[in-house]
Amino acid sequence: MSTGVESWSAESFAEMSAMSPFVGSEVILTAVVAVVWIVWQIWQIKAENARYDEQEAKL
């Protein structure tokens, strides 16, 4: 079982390009990271709005 590179031998190294594990999953990873970014941005705006609502109520 290997998630990527199985050998650093001269033959393997000469043919190698990508060295990271799970080569081929990059498009899925891109989609996941894009979702993480967008969700974080939405959460941040909501949290900030709630904070200011609370603060306004106290003032």
């Binding site: 190294f13 190698m16 390009s17 990508a18 060295m19 990271s20 498009v27 990873l29 891109t30 990271v33």
Partner: peptide, 14 residues
């Protein structure tokens, strides 16, 4: 320059 391009990560050729 796209995230899935071969050069955008650990790559012994780049």
């Amino acid at each position: 320059g796209l995230p899935w391009d071969a050069t955008m990560g650990a790559n012994v050729k780049d």
